[in-house]
């Protein structure tokens, strides 16, 4: 069994979390403002939820995920619970396997991110199938939007998770 690393002191962690959240919110807003194509509209907060896992206690992580999801659901559209549900699933997956795995390992975090994106895209697909009129087949939607989005999110995980994890873990050893 791998022992968890000591949790950060929250007085150091909270300002950092707040700064990261603001930066991510800005990037997410910019993507919406510049009307990025759908396949490039990745969920940046997913990286934060995954990246913050090693430094938060499970219950705090769950609370953080639910509140972040609530904020994003408020700022998003009709499907209430899209973000909350995904982030809650992410927390569940992470802490289920926490005793057997090293949560700080980048490959593990990338795999988890990929798993969460798959869950998100299943939600989107179910929503789309039940809601939209598709002239061409649904396969086109999956191939042209969901698969590229998955690819970009997984590649982005490498780009975003390293700085997020490094910065959050910066003062773990007092």
């Amino acid at each position: 069994m791998i022992k968890r690393k000591p949790h950060l002191e929250y007085r150091y962690l909270l300002p950092r979390l707040l700064i990261i959240m603001l930066l991510l919110l800005f990037c997410q807003w910019l993507m919406a403002y510049l009307a990025f194509p759908l396949y490039a509209r990745i969920d940046l907060f997913l990286y934060l939820i995954v990246g913050v896992a090693p430094v938060l206690k499970p219950l705090h992580h769950l609370l953080f995920a639910v509140s972040t999801g609530y904020i994003l659901d408020t700022l998003s559209g009709r499907l209430w619970g899209f973000h909350i549900a995904t982030y809650t699933c992410a927390v569940a997956f992470m802490h289920l396997a926490a005793d057997e795995t090293e949560m700080r390992s980048l490959p593990y975090q990338v795999i988890l991110t990929a798993l969460c994106v798959i869950i998100q895209e299943i939600f989107i697909l179910v929503y789309a199938v039940n809601s939209y009129e598709f002239f061409s087949s649904l396969t086109d939607f999956v191939v042209s939007i969901l698969i590229p989005r998955f690819g970009i999110t997984v590649l982005g995980a490498i780009l975003f998770l390293i700085p997020i994890s490094a910065w959050l873990a910066g003062r773990s050893e007092p």
């Binding site: 993507m31 700022l75 998003s76 559209g77 009709r78 899209f82």
Partner: peptide
Amino acid sequence: VVNDLSGFFQSVI
């Protein structure tokens, strides 16, 4: 004030 951040649910605030 804000466009749908996810892009998949067509709404604005």
